Amino acid sequence: MRIRLDLSYDGTDFHGWAAQPGLRTVQGELAAALATLLRVPSVDLVCAGRTDAGVHARGQVVHTDLEDPPPPEVLVRRLNGILPADVRVRRAAVAPVSFDARFGALWRRYAYRIADRPEAVDPLVRGHVLAWPRPLDLEAMNAASQLLVGRHDFASFCKQREGATTIRTLDELSWDRDAAGVAVGTVRADAFCHSMVRSLVGCLVVVGEGRRPAAWAGEVLAAEARSSSVPVVHAHGLTLEEVAYPPDDELEARSLQTRAKRVRDE
């Protein structure tokens, strides 16, 4: 039976999502909890987004195939009784066999939070909000952001992996302030490559400080090569907020489409 799990976690003490020998990871904790609950040697898990070390999640989605699992509400209660406090399963549901947490997703939405004013720096949320010593011009950052939206080769903002494409469709990139005055960047795309969001934010922070004009973001994108002038901001300001999926009758088609290698639009 295919089961969908929606979970949240504080990434502070994790070495990312993916299981790694000798390191504490979200996948490792969840797989161990499921194995304990179901009394099986191991459990395979597939997630929507393999978050890096220190990155948080409020809307991570996972699927797993289980034999004779307990009812969803019982599964949630028992898992949360085993899991450490920095990981919570928010919901469990029986999913169609065509549901794939990774390849079936339409988009992932992240938020990056920056406290760039003294009155916005709250020690109680320091593990989730980046404290920045200089004020940022969100109007300039939004102007630069619009140059990055669309289907592009984001090689300038990604750590290249052999054989992997860096072409992505960035649907939304925008900045606003929340009620506490924290600058919140919303980043939504069909998928992200390694360190992409943190590099995009690093580029926009340079613009927000006035060290580069908004047009510079477009120049960085067009170069299609990593540059030391683009900082990669700290992981702890980043949270995976939401993952969206199509209706059940479109899941299989979406998975096939996603598995096809992305190409640049002509």
Results as ranks from 00 to 15, higher is better:
Ala179Trp: 12
Ile167Leu: 14
Arg77Ile: 01
Gly208Lys: 10
Leu79Val: 03
Asp153Lys: 10
Val197Thr: 04
Thr25Lys: 11
Lys261Gln: 15
Val55Ala: 11
Thr51Phe: 09
Ala183Arg: 12
Tyr112Ser: 07
Glu224Lys: 15
Ala225Cys: 09
Thr258Leu: 04
Ala180His: 13
Arg58Ala: 13
Thr166Gln: 04
Arg24Trp: 06
Ser229Lys: 14
Ala140Gln: 05
Ala164Met: 10
Glu266Arg: 14
Leu238Pro: 09
Asp86Val: 13
Ala131Thr: 00
Arg212Pro: 03
Gly22Trp: 12
Gln27Pro: 08
His236Phe: 13
Pro96Trp: 13
Pro135Phe: 05
Glu250Asp: 08
Asp52Val: 03
Gly218Phe: 12
Pro41Arg: 10
Asp178Ala: 08
Leu7Thr: 03
Leu66Lys: 01
Met196Trp: 07
Arg226Ala: 12
Leu30Ser: 04
Asn80Leu: 03
Pro72Val: 06
Asp122Thr: 04
Ser156Val: 01
Leu23Ala: 08
His128Pro: 00
Arg211Cys: 01
Ala143Ile: 01
Lys159Pro: 02
Val74His: 00
Gly49His: 08
Val182Ile: 15
Arg168Thr: 05
Asp52Cys: 03
Val220Leu: 06
Leu124Glu: 08
Trp216Cys: 13
Ser98Ala: 15
Val97Arg: 15
Leu75Glu: 01
Ala235His: 14
Asp13Pro: 00
Val121Asn: 02
Ala48Gln: 05
His63Arg: 00
Leu79Asp: 01
Lys261Leu: 14
Leu200Val: 05
Ala120His: 07
Glu242Met: 04
Val46Leu: 11
Leu204His: 07
Val205Phe: 08
Arg264Ala: 12
Pro133Tyr: 11
Val182Asp: 02
Lys159Glu: 13
Thr169Gly: 11
Val61Glu: 01
Arg134His: 08
Cys203Gly: 02
Arg39Glu: 14
Val129Thr: 12
Gly54Asn: 04
Ala155Lys: 09
Val55Met: 11
Trp132His: 15
Leu83Pro: 01
Gly210Ile: 09
Leu124Asn: 06
Glu209Val: 02
Ala105Pro: 02
Thr12Pro: 00
Ala131Lys: 00
Val184Trp: 02
Arg264Gln: 07
Thr186Pro: 02
Val89Lys: 02
Leu136Arg: 11
Ala48Phe: 05
Ile114Glu: 06
Phe99Arg: 07
Ala92Ile: 05
Ala101Leu: 01
Leu136Ala: 12
Pro84Ser: 08
Ala32Glu: 14
Arg117Phe: 07
Gln60Val: 05
Ile3Leu: 00
His56Asn: 08
Arg126Cys: 02
Leu30Tyr: 06
Arg88Asp: 03
Glu224Met: 09
Val94Gly: 02
Asn142Cys: 02
Lys159Ile: 07
Val129Arg: 12
Pro84Cys: 08
Val43Ala: 01
Gly127Met: 03
Pro72Tyr: 00
Ala120Arg: 09
Ala183Gln: 13
Ala85Phe: 03
